[in-house]
Amino acid sequence: MTPLLSAQDLSVHTADGQVLLKPVSLQVHSGEVVGIIGANGAGKSTLLKALAGIQPVPSGSIQLAGQEAPTLSSLQRAQILGYLEQRPQLHWPMQVQQVVALARLSFGDRELPDGIAAIAAALAATSMTAFSQRDFLQLSEGEKLLVNLARVLAGAPRLLLADEPTAALDPAHQHRVMQLLRQRAAAGMAVLVVLHDLTLAARYCDRLLLLHKGALLAEGTPAAVLSSANLQHAFHIDAVLDTASHAVMIRTSH
């Protein structure tokens, strides 16, 4: 089956030559939830931004839905790919409903029945319908993140790139968001998600990519990637994955 997202030898460096990402290759298929994990500064967000087309990629290639990414127009790309940023920002006081409606810009149907239905469904899926008339800027950080998730889902992307979507949420909402991503994957979406919480990564991801100092250290099932040796190497912690509870238990740290 053709992967929805495929990248070969993707590398990123700054203008002054500092390497942010060493050559990384990956594939994400429809129906999969793939997690990107790693310590702070490992290159997780850089990789996601490179795949989303935000970060310039000096070398390597990306294919989206079987097509070379550079051959797609910006609007075509927006209809395939949804990007959930780490820190949602909005520069004007807008209603939640209007923020979510921005996902339909590339379809041009914000005020047409299809667009309105997609916006309502996305608000319902994230339990944010009751907030639809509220000012986005007055919401808590967690609520803002859920609205942004609704905004991405309203665009009905085939591939979702999410940068730490659970970072500002309480445990109940963390699980709610991850369950939602799993549901979307079951419906055919491909999900690539950056996570800091290793237990969430173990529980909800089909595969994991472990980044370390801008390079891919390990790739595979959570059980294979979250080995004690990898955790020691990447995070400098003495920890073990309990496969029954999907919990990563730290024994000591230094």
Binding site: I54, S73, E85, W92, L102, L105, S106
Partner: peptide, 23 residues
């Protein structure tokens, strides 16, 4: 007009919505 709407969410998100400021 649509690019300005998308820019409400910042340059990066506007680009992923199909409206990169560079264009």
């Amino acid at each position: 007009r649509r690019c300005l709407d998308a820019l409400s969410l910042g340059e990066d998100t506007a680009a992923t919505l199909g409206y990169p400021l560079s264009q």
